[in-house]
Amino acid sequence: MTDRYLVSPSPHIHAKASTDSLMRDVLIALLPVTVAAILFYGWSELLVLGVSLLSCALLEWAIAKWMMHDVRIANVPSALVTGLLLALNLPATAPWWVVFAGAVFAIGITKMSFGGLGQNIFNPAIAARVFLLVSFPKQMTVWAAPNGFLPVTDAISGATLLGKYNEGGMEALRALGYPGNHALFFDMGGSVGEISAGLLLLGFAYLLLRKVVKPWIPLSIFATIALISGIFHGVAPDTYTGPVLNLLAGGVILGACFMATDYVTSPMSAWGGVIYGAGIGFIVMMIRYFGSYPEGMSFAILIMNCFVPLIDRAFHQKKYGRG
C-alpha cells in the first residue's frame, strides 16, 4: 500500500445539490421574469439590475473580507439572489443611489450584521424594499409605464391597480374597466418583478421540478388570500376587491414564490410553512383592505419572519416509532 487514500466516517458519497447550486437554481428560475422586465422597461431596468446585482455581490464579499475578516463567510451566489430579488422589487425608474442604498441595507444590515448567510432573521431583499419604501416613498412609488424594447399597448401607467383601489376604492377600479378587459398577464405596472404572473409561476414551477423548494408556503398564501378576499368580495362586492385581482396583482406571486420561500427566513416543517403562509396571506389582505398602504406583501413577509423561530419550535416532523 504505497498510495495514500482518504479515510472518513460514512457516508462516502454526497448528493449533487450544494448551497451554490440551489442559489443558481433560484437565479435561473427568476431569469424569465428578469428578461421580460428588461424587454418591457428597457435601459432604466438594466441599470437597476446592474447596480443591484453588482453592489450586493461586492458588499457581501467586502464586508466578509474587511469587517468580518473571513472571506469564507461571503456567499456570493446568495448575494446575487438577494440582488436580483431586490431589483425585481423596485420600480424601473428607481435612481441608482436608491438601489445602492437598498443593497447596503439588504446585505450590510439585514444579512451580514447577523453573521452572514443562514443567520439573518429577515429576508434581506424584502427588508431592503421596506426600508426604501419608508425612506424614499416618492422614488419608490413612481411606476413607470412599460417603455422598453417591446411595444406594449394597454399598459397602465402611474398608479397600480392596488394603488387605485387604495385611493379611490372600487369606483376607481371600475373607471379603468375592472373587472373585464385586462389580460392579467403582461399589463401590470408596479415593481418590475410584478410584471408577469405567468413568467413568475413558470420560474416557480422550475424550482418545484428541481425540488429546490416545496409548494406548501405559496399554496398556503394563495389559499388564504383567495379565502379572505372571496369572503369579503362575496359579502360586499362593491367595497372589496375579489380573489383574482388580489392573487395576481401586486407582489403576491413574486413574494409568495420567491421571498416567502427563502430557506433562511421561513419555517422548516411543512405544517409550519402552512401556518406561516396563512399568516402572510391574512396580513396582506388586512393591509390591502384596511391599511393605508396599497400593498402589504413585504410587510406581511417581514412580520411573519419574526414568528419563524416560534413556529419552528411548535412544529416538528413525526418521529419514527414514537406515536
Partner: peptide, 19 residues
C-alpha cells in the same frame, strides 16, 4: 509518516472513534 488522509470532521474524538 502519514499513510492515509483523514477526510472527516476535524475532531480528534470523531477521528479516534473511526480508526
Amino acid at each position: 509518516p502519514r499513510v492515509n488522509d483523514y477526510d472527516g470532521l476535524k475532531s480528534c474524538k470523531v477521528k479516534a472513534a473511526l480508526y
